[in-house]
Each structure stands twice: as C-alpha cells, then as structure tokens.
Design a binder for these strands. Structure first.
Length: 185
DNA sequence: TATGAGATCAACT
DNA sequence: GTTGATCTCATAC
C-alpha cells in the first residue's frame, strides 16, 4: 500500500515508528527503512528550531515532501516532512535494508558488503543517488515510491546519533536486531 | 576496538 | 571563525 501525504500529516512522534519496516524506493532502487530519527520544531537539535532559512524552507511547507540537506559539507541526508504546514517537523532516514537494485548500489558505493550500502544517512543517499536537487520533491510521486510495511515489526528506541543539543531525547527508532543499523542501540 | 584527521559548506556568532 | 542530524581511511592499542 502506497503511503500518501495524509500519512505524514500527523505528529512526527506517531509517524516515525510507523515508518520502520516501510519500503523506500527511489527510481526503483532501495529497500526497507530500518532506522530513523524524529526532529520536532520545538527541539533544539532540529534544523527548523531557529526559524525559517533558505536551507530548511521545505520543513516549513506541507507534510509528505522530501527535505534534503548537505551534512558536514560532504554528504546528503534525506528527511520526510511531517505534521501540518508551518510546524516544521521531519524524520531523518538513517538506514535501509537494501532490497532492490543491489548491483547499482554496490557500484555507486564502491562496496560489496550489503550491510554497509545504506547503513547511515549519508551512505543511503549515495546508494540511492539522492542529492540537494531532490529537495522539496513529493513523496507520493516518482521518483519516490513509499509503501507501508506488511506487518508490525519489533521496534527499538534509543537516543539520537551525532548531536549535542537535546541529545538525551529518545527519538531514534530502529528495527530490532537488524544487521543494517548504522549503530547499535 | 578506538580515536583522529581530512573533506568542505551553510548557518550562526 | 566555529560548528555540525557524516563517512572514510589511517594509525594506535
């Protein structure tokens, strides 16, 4: 079942755990989401916390769109915008279990180890070839294709990775026992 | 296993 | 000028 914009037009804290196990394809390539983090606009660690800037503008728009930003000047990171327009909340997609397009992903990443293809926000964008040019695209139309999970998975919760502000908030979600996580919980 | 450097850019002080 | 929602490679323990 395809995930529509309505799916994302709810609290990030509701949407985030429901995305674990969902399938993300970009140009037909991708896999199951096994790890992500929620960023709420009242959260000091969120890009939108300080108000609207050219970079984070998409977060202030309607739910169901992709927010892509450059991280540390090198990597691209993919987020899904949630809640209502102006609420500026999003989930950061941190890891996938590669399912389709393995050959292409291996070539793009220059690696053969399946576990390292999409186990991190920057790695995942390199494997799916997502860049800043895709910032603001709708999630319910090509090249994106998002499908709901077939069954309720075992979900683990933890603290988020690589942040200093509000670092104690337990807003990181993962698929229990998955070998494709970027870090252990 | 763990720590450190380098790559490199936008926002912020 | 500093910091960061990161990754890779190198060197050390």
């Amino acid at each position: 079942m395809t995930l529509t914009r309505d799916f994302f037009a709810r609290s990030v804290h509701e949407v985030a755990p429901e995305l674990i196990g969902a399938t993300l394809l970009f140009d037909g390539i991708g896999g199951e989401i096994v790890e992500l983090e929620a960023y709420h606009h009242t959260d000091p660690a969120a890009h939108s916390y300080g108000g609207l800037t050219p970079r984070n503008a998409v977060m202030f728009g309607p739910a169901g769109f992709a927010y892509v930003y450059r991280s540390y000047g090198i990597h691209w990171c993919l987020n899904f915008v949630c809640e209502q327009e102006g609420s500026a909340s999003a989930v950061l997609i941190r890891a996938l279990r590669p399912r389709t397009g393995l050959k292409v992903m291996r070539r793009r990443r220059g690696l053969s180890d399946e576990r390292l293809l999409c186990s991190g926000p920057g790695r995942l964008c390199q494997a799916l070839k997502i860049t800043g040019s895709h910032n603001g695209l709708a999630l319910d139309a090509p090249p994106f294709e998002l499908s709901a999970r077939p069954a309720l998975p075992d979900i683990v919760v933890g603290v988020r990775v690589g942040i200093t502000k509000a670092a104690e908030k337990p807003w990181r979600y993962g698929l229990a026992g998955s070998p494709f996580l970027s870090k252990r919980f």
